[in-house]
């Protein structure tokens, strides 16, 4: 009897403890949401004299870590540098560019937490995203495509629309959501970054890797046994992202984008990164 009673008390106190922890966490999260009050990004970058950009480090051509220098390099990174110079001119305040590595999965949260001021990280402008963050005008027109093993017989996304097929993508990217619309029967696996996704494709965990064509071309240059097929089946305009409700920052950025296109900087960067990528007509990317 005594033992059964003790046991009952033990169970009840465990349940109470669990509920208390859950309650505590819920109220803490509510509190945290209330505390994140609005700060004007344009004012902040002028005051601090630097812009903290989120860029990728796992995406060839756009943002890839150079293992020798320890710095990310790519088209997005260079755009960030060019924009920083231009924004500096526009504001009259000398500003420098600071880089933080983000992934598809972390970039929005880092922005919300004000760990970064903005990100240029192969982010497609979508209506869903525009509800929570602000985008500049598109700085690059990409489209989703698939990368497959040479000689696999897969010609386009349609060939993957069956229950036997597995398509690999990257968690947090727009492409894993989109691909379900184009191949609803296929199984979709979302891996951590493009390195892991490519490794999984090579290991045979799936038949195709899907994401934006620019990124896939980057992967194809590194992995000659693989090729981009079927052209693009979506339009993915990349934008520079800022926290919600930052009209001034967006306005200044759009102005700066126009300026770097007008002064030829933009086309120089397109040439620098995309000339010589097999299967890609780099001239079509020029503005």
């Amino acid at each position: 009897m005594e033992k059964a009673k003790k046991r009952k008390i033990g169970i009840i106190s465990s349940i109470i403890l669990t509920l208390l922890i859950i309650f505590g966490v819920v109220s803490a999260s509510a509190l945290a949401e209330n505390n994140s009050k609005h700060v004007d990004t344009w004012e902040r970058v002028k005051r601090l004299g630097k812009i903290r950009w989120g860029v990728k480090a796992d995406t060839k051509l756009f943002g890839l870590m150079d293992t020798k220098t320890g710095q990310p390099e790519g088209f997005d990174v260079d755009i960030a540098k060019a924009l920083t110079v231009q924004l500096s001119k526009q504001s009259g305040v000398p500003m420098q560019a600071d880089f933080t590595i983000v992934t598809s999965n972390t970039r929005i949260q880092l922005l919300k937490n004000a760990n970064i001021d903005g990100f240029i990280a192969t982010a497609t402008i979508t209506p869903e995203r525009e509800k929570v963050i602000d985008f500049s005008n598109s700085y690059f027109k990409a489209g989703q495509s698939i990368l497959v093993k040479k000689g696999s017989g897969i010609k386009s996304i349609k060939d993957l629309n069956n229950f036997k097929s597995t398509i690999i993508g990257v968690a947090g990217s727009n492409s894993v959501i989109n691909v379900k619309k184009f191949a609803p029967k296929a199984k979709v696996l979302a891996l951590g970054d493009y390195g892991q996704a490519m490794a999984a494709l090579k290991a045979g965990q799936g038949q195709a890797l899907t994401t934006d064509n620019g990124i896939l071309y980057g992967l194809a240059t590194e992995n000659p046994g693989y090729t981009v097929v079927g052209g693009t089946f979506t339009s993915e305009p990349y934008g520079v992202a800022f926290d919600n409700n930052q009209p001034e920052m967006v306005k200044q950025t759009n102005k700066a984008l126009k300026a770097i296109i007008a002064n030829g900087t933009y086309n120089k960067l397109i040439k620098k990164w995309f000339r010589g990528v097999p299967g890609l007509d780099w001239r079509s990317l020029e503005k």
């Binding site: 966490v25 929005i108 919300k112 869903e128 963050i133 947090g172 959501i177 979302a190």
Partner: peptide
């Protein structure tokens, strides 16, 4: 895995992980 995916589609990592 699901937390990662929910966080990615809803942009609410904080609550997904909680």
């Amino acid at each position: 895995y699901t937390a990662n995916n929910v966080a990615a589609t809803t942009f609410d990592s904080f609550n997904s992980y909680i």
